[in-house]
């Protein structure tokens, strides 16, 4: 493979990494927010959010991408490919991760929460000081697994013209009539990205275990 061909794929990798990073930073907190709103059982809103989450979870990701890019403009929301890709990834991962957060909130120790309330901590403090520090640690595995799924969803945004790793590899293959080398490079890059995530998860988990013993 020539250097420019490799450059093309690396440029794609930068796009993929950027899409993933921004979507992760937006979707995990958004998922938590969805879970909190549903958990608080705010009338109407909780029901609407539950329906929204079910709908998104049932929609194939590629359909969601097409919807954001081609249907939202008719509602007056016109997005360029990259923002549209980020929005679709964010909605998707927010919906899935909200189920993880929701389960964590529902199963959180009632005793601990009661103790915090009995000692005068406010609702907000109970969440930020007692509940959250524990649930993110306990759910690091499922959350990271959601993030790797997000990463593997990114090739779907090629349908709206975003050139990420897979699309870039495809182009190189089409130009050189040798699809194997570029796709091998693409696979290596995906593996490296996911290995980095999983490695990060292990490091954090090991630190948690050393400190607090078994993480539930």
């Amino acid at each position: 493979m020539t250097w420019p061909a490799i450059r093309t794929i690396l440029d794609g990798a930068v796009v993929t990494a950027m899409l993933a990073a921004v979507s992760i930073l937006l979707s995990l907190p958004l998922g938590l927010l969805l879970a909190l709103l549903r958990w608080r059982r705010v009338p109407v809103l909780a029901g609407a959010l539950a329906a929204f989450v079910s709908l998104v979870r049932a929609t194939p990701f590629i359909t969601l991408v097409l919807f954001v890019f081609f249907i939202l403009p008719s509602a007056g929301i016109q997005l360029d490919p990259v923002p549209a890709a980020i929005l679709a990834l964010t909605i998707n991962t927010a919906a899935f991760s909200s189920e993880i957060w929701r389960a964590a909130l529902q199963t959180f120790s009632r005793d601990q929460r009661e103790a915090a309330a009995a000692f005068g901590l406010s609702e907000r403090q109970i969440f930020t000081r007692i509940v959250f520090p524990q649930i993110w640690r306990a759910n690091l595995g499922p959350l990271i697994s959601e993030v790797t799924i997000l990463l593997k969803c990114t090739p779907a945004v090629a349908v709206i013209g975003v050139v990420e790793i897979t699309r870039a590899a495809g182009r190189v293959g089409a130009e050189t009539y040798e699809p194997l080398p570029p796709f091998l490079v693409a696979t290596l890059i995906y593996t490296a990205l996911i290995a980095t995530l999983v490695r990060g998860q292990r490091v954090v988990e090991r630190r948690i275990a050393r400190r607090y013993g078994v993480t539930r």
Binding site: S109, D111, Q112, E114, A115, A116, A117, A118, F119, G120, L121, Q125, R129, I130, P133, Q134, R137, Y212
Partner: peptide
């Protein structure tokens, strides 16, 4: 509630805080 403390049957300590962290949590933050 700050003038009434409580001791629970199942302790209800906060496992992510040290022993001292548990003891000073409410005095510091409440």
């Amino acid at each position: 509630r700050t003038s009434i403390a409580m001791v629970f049957q199942h302790f209800a300590l906060w496992p992510h805080l040290t022993v001292l962290g548990n003891v000073v949590e409410a005095p510091v933050h409440v």
